[in-house]
Design a protein around this nucleic acid. Sequence first.
DNA 1: TAGATATGATACAAATATGTTTCATAAGTG
DNA 2: CACTTATGAAACATATTTGTATCATATCTA
Lengths: 189, 189
Amino acid sequence: MADQLDARIQKSQAALLRAGMYLLSRNQEASLSDIAREAAVGRSTLYRLYDTKEELVKAIAIHCLQAFDEATSHIEDEAESGLHAFHLMFKALFPLSVEMEFLMKVSELDEEDPELLAIFQQQANEIRKLVEYARAEGSLSHDIPVDWVVCLVDGLFYTSWISRREMPMDHDALADLAFQTFCHGVTHR
Amino acid sequence: MADQLDARIQKSQAALLRAGMYLLSRNQEASLSDIAREAAVGRSTLYRLYDTKEELVKAIAIHCLQAFDEATSHIEDEAESGLHAFHLMFKALFPLSVEMEFLMKVSELDEEDPELLAIFQQQANEIRKLVEYARAEGSLSHDIPVDWVVCLVDGLFYTSWISRREMPMDHDALADLAFQTFCHGVTHR
DNA sequence: TAGATATGATACAAATATGTTTCATAAGTG
DNA sequence: CACTTATGAAACATATTTGTATCATATCTA
């Protein structure tokens, strides 16, 4: 059960996923020609590996979600509390800013494909479970709805990647800021 | 100096701005045919009033920014403190969710046009001034950078409009939630 | 090394979007 | 009401993009 794929295919696929993620996250209207050029791969090869544009987008999205899963898989074991899990999550996911940006844009666009939708919802559900755990733990204020907290997590992801355009900052420091904001807001105590 | 514009032009323009704002905020790839159809206006008329697609987008963006200015103009007088101004701002701007969504998407896309860029930066600057005022007032924590707070405001706008997709909620209640989060985060005190 | 297979270049077809022009008709204006 | 002007429909040209097919060449595998 070694890798069944030709080395050339693996290389092309990796290059296309990377280029597609990069270009499409910056500009949804990027063409397949653009992506092939950025990947330094012939346009024919792109169409050979992905029948349609949708298929490429889906492959990239799945790739991003896998990266997320890998980056967060350790949290379950390491987290000492529900709140701590959020801190670890910010630290784990902020470095994946390109993946984050891509998924944010695609998740708005691609509401047709049931397969993708299922993965998105699964991802959202994991955050929701985290929120509910922290709430049950007594860490979260009770007059704040679970739904809002779930959205706030996404909102802090968004905050972090727009802030990286303005202030060049360490991913880790950004995660600390987001976590502090999440817990206590930004006012003087 | 009465309105120099024919009533028909005014009506067409208003319909096109509205339809364009609506469709483009949901899907950046909406075509001019789509927009004309949504506006119940002939495609020829669209091209007569806006030479290019860029011009239409710019007109919509300016329209949105004007709406923002109008909605927030009262804050300067009414705000009793720097923090209170943020609360008023959330209350004033959250109802403009379509305008907000449009501007967020366009501001990422349209980084060429200097005129638009200038308006965006002016808008961002007003938020920055608000943040700096609140900081000088002693309301904001000193170990949190001004840049982060500025981005957080945008992030809470984002949070609010994704939350409206999941939980149907009053704009006003949403603004309260955002303000509370801004001030104290979401943890139990 | 020999055979299998992925690749890039090219040409091609079809669909779609942008932008222009024309003209009879409808609507506002004075 | 008479006149001016905006409108919608249609035809048209152009550019871009998607997707397919072919074929000589380069690269991997066994």
